[in-house]
Simulated assay, not measured.
Amino acid sequence: MELSYDLDADAMYLHATDVPVARTVEVDSGTMVDVADDGSVVGIEIVTPARNWPIDRLLAEFDISAEATTLLRSLYQNASPEAFTASGSGSGSAVILPFRDVRTTNSGSVAVAL
């Protein structure tokens, strides 16, 4: 499982598995779930993660692993404008997330292996 955060788009993506995506379900205007043929969740994208996003609906409607559920609940509890704020601009900017080991990439996104 990997969590990435795109500084420019202000979007978080939880990549749960390497299974091919069969379809994408829009839960709300800023929450999309990539689903495999068997109905399992491949990934979840949350645009503007500092907002109130539909975590209860995600957990009720989709087959999300226990590990991903724990992570999503942790992120949701820590969601605030300060938790997802970039300092600086352009590639290599720092971002504050509720994790100990966060690395920025040259493309301006942040990746955390979980």
Results as ranks from 00 to 15, higher is better:
30 G>Y: 10
31 T>H: 03
31 T>W: 04
34 D>V: 02
35 V>H: 04
35 V>K: 07
36 A>T: 02
36 A>I: 03
38 D>R: 05
38 D>P: 04
40 S>M: 12
40 S>A: 15
41 V>I: 01
43 G>P: 06
43 G>N: 11
43 G>E: 13
43 G>D: 08
44 I>N: 05
45 E>N: 08
45 E>F: 02
46 I>P: 02
46 I>E: 04
47 V>L: 01
47 V>E: 07
48 T>L: 10
49 P>L: 15
50 A>Q: 14
51 R>D: 07
51 R>Q: 11
51 R>A: 07
52 N>C: 11
52 N>W: 06
54 P>Q: 13
54 P>R: 07
55 I>V: 15
56 D>A: 15
56 D>H: 13
57 R>L: 15
58 L>P: 09
59 L>N: 06
60 A>N: 13
60 A>T: 14
60 A>R: 15
64 I>Q: 02
64 I>S: 03
64 I>C: 03
65 S>R: 03
65 S>N: 02
67 E>W: 03
68 A>L: 14
68 A>F: 08
69 T>P: 09
69 T>S: 09
70 T>C: 01
70 T>V: 03
71 L>T: 02
71 L>C: 03
74 S>D: 11
74 S>C: 08
74 S>L: 12
74 S>F: 10
75 L>N: 10
75 L>G: 12
75 L>E: 09
76 Y>M: 10
76 Y>D: 14
76 Y>L: 06
76 Y>A: 14
76 Y>F: 12
77 Q>A: 14
79 A>C: 04
79 A>D: 07
79 A>R: 04
80 S>G: 12
81 P>C: 00
81 P>G: 00
82 E>N: 03
82 E>K: 01
85 T>F: 05
86 A>E: 10
86 A>F: 09
86 A>L: 09
87 S>A: 08
88 G>P: 00
88 G>Y: 00
89 S>L: 03
89 S>K: 06
89 S>P: 03
90 G>P: 02
93 S>P: 02
93 S>H: 05
93 S>N: 08
93 S>K: 06
93 S>C: 08
93 S>F: 06
93 S>Y: 05
94 A>M: 13
94 A>H: 12
94 A>D: 10
95 V>S: 00
